[in-house]
Each structure stands twice: as structure tokens, then as C-alpha cells.
């Protein structure tokens, strides 16, 4: 038995820089595989909905604008997503993946956590329809 068994560690640490980082001024680069936000590439999507089916937290919805011309909008609820990556595994056409860049989630409004993915014109069309219907509701 002795005392001061960790004295050496303490002394050595005096000559090292801090272990703690000054986030957000200083950031660890995220690893290649890090699972941040979901991204979606509509070009290859067939609308099979396999991704939606196994999502454990019902975080994605696929809206079909026109099936014949393969026009889909993916509604993604970031705040429900548990970042498990099951949707990306399920997609046979590799339309989905998890970003390792986009992972800092803080917002003042919950609305910002619902995002729409798809071809620009499809998303635009979808959102216009959405606003129209909510306007109609408020007018009633």
C-alpha cells in the first residue's frame, strides 16, 4: 500500500494541453461513417417505400407526386429520427445515406426539424399545395 499513486499522472498533465475541447470553437472532425442527418437522392428512387416501412421512429414519409414519372418528395422529421441507418440499408437503389457533415441540431423552432427532400420543382409544387391547403383551413 502506498499513497499518491496517481501523482505522476497529475504532474505529467501539467505539461500537456487540456483534454477538454472548446466546443463550438474547436471541433473534432467527425469520422467518415458518422451517422448525422439523412440525405436523399430522388433520381434513383422507385417509390417502393421499403425505407419508410422499417423506420423505427416513423421519421420519414414518402409523398408521391406522380408515380409514372417517378416524382417523389420525402418528408423527413429530423427530431424523430434516431439515426439508426436502417432506411439506408433497406434502400436497394442507394438513394439514402447519413451525412457525416451535417449533425449539429439546434433550432429555436421545431418547424425547422421537418425538411423536404426531392427534386426542386417537386418540393416546390408540394409545398405550394401544402400552404394552399393550410390557408384553406385557416380561412374556414
Amino acid at each position: 500500500m502506498r499513497i499518491g499513486t496517481m501523482l505522476k499522472d497529475i504532474i505529467a498533465s501539467m505539461f500537456k494541453k487540456n483534454s477538454t475541447q472548446h466546443y463550438p470553437f474547436e471541433k473534432n472532425p467527425t469520422p467518415e461513417r458518422f451517422r448525422g442527418n439523412l440525405y436523399y437522392d430522388p433520381s434513383a428512387c422507385t417509390g417502393c417505400c421499403l425505407c419508410v416501412k422499417d423506420c423505427p421512429s416513423k421519421a420519414i414519409e414518402l409523398v408521391t407526386i406522380d408515380r409514372a414519372t417517378k416524382r417523389f418528395v420525402l418528408k423527413y422529421h429530423m427530431d424523430r429520427c434516431v439515426y439508426c441507418g436502417q432506411c439506408a440499408i433497406n434502400c436497394k437503389f442507394k438513394c439514402m445515406g447519413m451525412s457525416n457533415k451535417d449533425w449539429e441540431h439546434a433550432a429555436l423552432d421545431k418547424k425547422e426539424f421537418t425538411v423536404y427532400y426531392g427534386k426542386d420543382e417537386d418540393v416546390k409544387q408540394f409545398l405550394e399545395k401544402l400552404t394552399a391547403s393550410t390557408d384553406a383551413e385557416t380561412n374556414e
Binding site: 496517481m6 499522472d9 497529475i10 483534454s19 473534432n28 469520422p31 467518415e32 461513417r33 458518422f34 451517422r35 434516431v82 439515426y83 439508426c84 441507418g85 436502417q86 447519413m98
Partner: peptide, 28 residues
């Protein structure tokens, strides 16, 4: 002291887990 140092070293394995699996906690 032991608490602080063991947790500092634990970061090494947390980073490994994150690199291998893509997350620190619920590795999936």
C-alpha cells in the same frame, strides 16, 4: 483523480466505437 483520468482515457474507446460504427452511444 482516478475518476477524471479514467474518463479521459475512456474517450479513446468512445472514438474508436464512433469510427467503427458511426455513433458513440447507440452504435447500431
Amino acid at each position: 483523480t482516478l475518476f477524471m483520468y479514467s474518463w479521459r482515457d475512456r474517450e479513446t474507446v468512445m472514438n474508436l466505437l464512433e469510427q467503427v460504427t458511426g455513433n458513440r452511444v447507440n452504435y447500431s
